[in-house]
């Protein structure tokens, strides 16, 4: 009897459609977010993460309506990220039916925002999303820094120190994306995931790089994470959620 490891399909959405880019480029259309969420929920996904990657804020209403539509049909936890900049943004998303919000760039610009958000809404609904990239050179001890603005902007902040600080400020969960691996299908950055997961007391979700089912297993057994997030392997029908769970279970991982 123990807690199951979670599989979280991620919907990157732009202008109300699910899309998936390779290293944030070459965006392919992957469907209607409400239909896609419902399908994953019916297949046994443990949570849904919805990331709004729309560049402009013009389509904020589209996002809110989409979140409302997903929440009225999907009865598993829903995390919403992208453009969460104020306590009002959080309130609006929670009211639309999100259970958690993912904060990324705004946390870097104003770390105190995470503290205020956790105090106001509770740590259980504050996920801090971290985009990390390896900065150490070959032969040097491994080191990662965090990047903002969808991975385009370097900050010079050490990823492990940042994760610890965000947890101290009240983050209830860390969503950790490797910018080196995102979209590559070469597997998670296991050293990065392990370093962060062992450094913080809260659950860590690994993201970025899943190409096959063994990658999910490795994330848990070697990356030591509590949940694995993937997009393209599910969106384009390469693998289904039940196939992923069956494979993970066959490797001794507890799944729902």
């Amino acid at each position: 009897m123990s807690l199951a490891k979670r599989i979280i399909p991620c919907l990157d959405c732009e202008n109300g459609r699910v899309v998936k880019g390779v290293k944030f480029l070459d965006i392919r259309d992957a469907g209607d977010p409400v239909e896609v969420s419902k399908r994953y929920c019916d297949q046994g996904a443990d949570e849904i993460t919805f990331l709004d990657i729309t560049a402009s804020s013009d389509n904020r209403d589209t996002t809110i309506h989409t979140v409302e539509a997903i929440a009225s049909q999907v009865f598993i936890p829903l995390t919403v990220g992208g453009g969460i900049r104020s306590l009002d943004d959080i309130r609006i998303m929670l009211r639309a039916g999100a259970d958690k919000v993912a904060i990324n760039t705004s946390a870097v610009l104003t770390p105190e925002f995470v503290k205020e958000a956790a105090e106001k809404f509770g740590s259980q609904c504050i996920v801090v999303a971290i985009d990390a990239k390896q900065v150490s050179l070959a032969g040097e001890p491994l080191r990662w820094e965090i990047f903002t603005h969808g991975g385009r902007k370097a900050t010079g902040i050490d990823a492990i120190e940042w994760a610890k600080r965000m947890v101290a400020y009240g983050a209830g969960e860390i969503l950790l994306t490797s910018m080196d691996r995102d979209g590559t299908k070469n597997g998670f950055d296991l050293a990065l995931n392990r370093a962060i997961s062992e450094a913080v007391s809260v659950p860590v979700i690994a993201s970025g790089g899943v190409g096959n089912l063994q990658d999910l297993v490795d994330g848990i057994t070697e990356g030591k994470v509590d949940a694995v997030l993937a997009a393209s392997i599910f969106h384009f029908g390469e693998f289904s959620i039940p196939e992923a769970k069956e494979y993970m279970a066959s490797k001794g991982i507890v799944v729902r």
């Binding site: 123990s2 490891k5 259980q124 209830g172 949940a227």
Partner: peptide, 13 residues
């Protein structure tokens, strides 16, 4: 032998 995270978050029996 795995360290358990707090909060207890996810699907349990």
């Amino acid at each position: 032998g795995e360290i358990l995270k707090v909060p207890h978050m996810g699907w349990n029996e």
